[in-house]
Amino acid sequence: MGAALRVTGASRSFGGVYAVREVDLTVEPGELRAVIGPNGAGKSTLFALIGGQLAVDSGTVVLDGRRIDRLAVHRRGKLGIGVVFQAARIFPGMTALENVMVGAHGTTRAGFVTAALRLPRFRAEERAIEARAWECLARTGIEEWADRPAETLPLGQQRALQLARALCGRPRLLLLDEPASGLRSGERKRLAALLGELRREGLTMLLIEHDVGFVMRLADRVTVLDLGRVIADGTPEQVRADSTVIDAYLGEAVT
């Protein structure tokens, strides 16, 4: 089951300029939440505040009742936050399958000694991880690339690889930063189908997206950021009808 995320009064500034200012955001377990907004609205900063790449100046980030805003990135990863970056941040020099298997690192129990001695408990765990990695490769449609060095995959497949890696870690909250940007329309449809499937399985997701059409069809709720502040929050229909949103961002293009 997915985790609940609660961001309260989160602010972060760079050189005196607020990138994110007093942002409140509550995502229920199993919800697919989209965060949209024009360029410079603070979407990526908010994303990094939750993932831990940036620290909040003030405010809190709470995952399932536990404050995580002071935790290091890897600790948040272990708590079940999976991240899919906009840029394909893969592990070059390792195969696609290995890339995905590394995603499960945060879930492993075996320590250095058991690993070095290849004790039975460790070997069972290794087998389970590999099986799960194959599953994740299949779900994201890149099974046939499994044995290729990750850096040789086409960009679309590298993006899918990142998603597979995140899924292999059994996340309870999945953060996706513009996962559809730069994808061809077939890939985009497949991604939308997969996200829908994950949502039905109860995974909590926070999706940052530029493409409004893409998120309006998928998201349970939509949060709109502008100049670092939340200007609207509601169902896709409510947000679409919101006059502030239309003025700030959507314009007449969305009907």
Binding site: G51, G52, Q53, A72, V73, H74, R75, G77, K78, V83, F85, R89, I90, F91, P92, G93, M94, E98, M101, V102, G103, A104, H105, G106, T107, T108, A110, F112, A115, A116, R118, F122, E125, E126, I129, R165, A166, G169
Partner: peptide, 28 residues
Amino acid sequence: LFFGRTDLGKALTACASNRYAARVVGIN
């Protein structure tokens, strides 16, 4: 065997390959 076949070995290799991404998947 250790570097190529174990989770810990892969995690070690992943650190050198991309530290940023390594942190995200829970690697210290």
